[in-house]
Design a protein around this nucleic acid. Structure first.
Lengths: 341, 341
DNA sequence: TCAGCCTTGATAGACGCCTATCAGGAATTG
DNA sequence: CAATTCCTGATAGGCGTCTATCAAGGCTGA
């Protein structure tokens, strides 16, 4: 019942602790047949190395860096808070997490930030713009032996080890299905507002949305996409214009941030109740609008889960430990008024 | 930059390591003013005890027991697998998890199982029937110093430290909102099928569902609840009867298991496409039916998350460590065809 | 046959904390 | 003021693993 230690293994194999250790950590040359004896003993005793003792002995510390967008986007601010929360929680587990804010929307700036990250880090998590320059910077880190995880927004063509975020085209498709079903058989126009058409996540959401809407709900016409730069004042302006131009508008899908701009525009036009409005990300503003009934559905990604998943993956990669795949899948949250947390 | 150790604290406070340790672990009597000096030094140096070293030194092991229902309910089988998975994953972290299957639907059996659990466990997680006998058994464990977490189904009136599961009345309300919205303004009847009306989770789902449907969608009539005992053959039978009796049935909400029975009944009647069907729990069967379009929405609770959350809570309770509350909230998954994992 | 290499054993010390014990000084009591 | 009791210091040994070093054989090749 007591713990099986390295010593027990050595005894069982008729070898010394030193040799067993050599095999376990592949440090010095050991004859193949000796290694086999060790492995056999390990299997027989079902030896499980004690991670605690190992980490203590190695004096191993994890140092990770999270690179997030600067600015006042509610979601990103929340993301930063989650990073800080988990960071202070993990100090006593010998994990140190630094937070670096930068202009991730500018490829050159982001890339040089990544380039400048010293090799003091075992891993880096980054909210990444999908741009060749950024891809190269990520690959550079990976080649220097730093594990890189993309967060929220992916760069699939890079060598990052993992993407901690939702499947955005799936999110767009889900929005379309809900939009179509909520509208019943009603005919009319649907408007789509995106933050920026150079951000991969927004592109994918739009793509998924348009695909399903065109295929499953052909009676709904999609208006040309409006760009908002995730700025709620601009969102309000373009929405107001759209509302004025299309009296038969019955649905709005806001792919990016700035949801409050749409709320204001809808209220000003007095059309909150007639228009089905689907937004992304649960914030104070969107939450209130959902309860009011102005927003019908919020599609959300849980920032805390994403951050913690990124940390787990980075830790696993740092000491080549297996991870439970299913645990790292970030699900798409769907909120209606009734299941708000 | 190096780690702050107990020795540094002793130095800073002008005391010995022994005294600092006495304060930290409250072992022997220490003069209040001395304790204050230690605490001040700890704050100044921002000392964080090394959890690894502490656990190693104490030779601390966590032993937990999970009590789950026996039987062939897909969801519960999946739950058991998740327990096994996390158990084998945590062996190297000095956590041992035993799994015990019992008839949780029989209060006496479940209670005596709980009573018989020796004090070898620091914590117990149980899928609990809400019954006075069971409540007493839980309280008995708690009084013997065992941390108890209810899993999937709660016993709110007991002294359990935590409930790892979804808010079922919220799940019911969500189902109602989706049902109402999906049906647009259509008038007709909605059927409700429950596993057992003595299981708390089913009662709460029903309650939430009826509440919202009556209030928000008064044009939809709810048929009397049918009991299925979570047996799909019985589900099929009662559904077939309901379909025959009500040609104007336009919605079905299945609160419990046995979703496949409804699928078969709907197919036999050829009314899959005309009836909006909302089911619980993502399994192979429900998944297939969702893709087919027979099921319109699946409301799910993620068994893996529930199990892992239960383990985290038990660990935190075992060594009186704080936990991140928000992290332990189990969300309600809503799946349509487009966001299946 | 001897130098040199390869493989293995033995062992010490570290990682940061816990537990226990003993001794000496301080504070309290009568 | 002496006899207790109370606090504190010093130190050893352990938890399971890693790292490093030295020594002892066995083996190879010239």
């Amino acid at each position: 019942m007591a713990r099986v230690t390295i010593e027990d293994v050595a005894l069982e194999a008729g070898l010394s602790v030193a040799t067993v250790d050599r095999v376990l950590n592949g440090r010095a040359a050991v004859r193949p047949q000796t290694a086999l004896r060790v492995e056999k003993a390990i299997r027989q005793l079902n030896y499980q190395p004690d991670r605690l003792a190992a980490r203590l002995a190695k004096g191993q510390e994890y140092r990770f860096c999270f690179v997030l967008p600067e600015g006042n986007n509610s979601f990103m601010i929340g993301l930063g808070e989650e990073v800080r929360a988990i960071a202070s929680h993990l100090v006593s587990d010998r994990v140190q997490i630094d937070l670096r804010l930068t202009d991730v929307f500018d490829a050159a700036t982001l890339a040089s930030t990544l380039d400048s990250i010293g090799d003091i880090y075992e891993g880096v998590a980054v909210v990444a713009l999908d741009h060749p320059r950024v891809r190269e910077a990520i690959n550079g880190l990976v080649e220097r032996g730093v594990a890189v995880v993309t967060l929220v927004s992916d760069v699939p063509s890079s060598k990052r080890v993992h993407y901690a975020g939702i499947d955005n085209s799936s999110a767009g498709r889900t929005a379309a299905t809900l939009m179509g079903r909520f509208l019943g058989g009603k005919k009319g126009k649907v408007g789509l507002i995106a933050g920026s058409l150079s951000l991969r996540d927004h592109i994918e959401r739009r793509f998924g949305f348009e695909q399903v809407l065109a295929q499953e709900f052909p009676h709904l016409a999609i208006l040309p996409v409006l760009e908002s730069r995730d700025d709620w004042q601009r969102v309000e302006k373009v929405t107001a214009e759209m509302l004025a131009a299309h009296p038969d508008l019955i649905g709005i899908y806001n792919v990016g941030a700035g949801a409050r701009g749409i709320v204001t525009a809808l209220e000003n036009a007095g059309r909150q109740k007639q228009i089905t409005y689907i937004a992304h990300e649960l914030t104070d503003h969107t939450r209130r609008a959902l309860v009011d009934g102005t927003i019908d559905v919020i599609i959300n990604q849980n920032a805390g889960h994403e951050v913690r998943s990124a940390v787990r993956v980075l830790m696993a990669k740092a000491d080549r430990t297996p991870l439970i795949e299913a645990m790292e899948h970030i699900r798409i949250d769907i909120f209606v008024r009734d299941n708000l947390p």
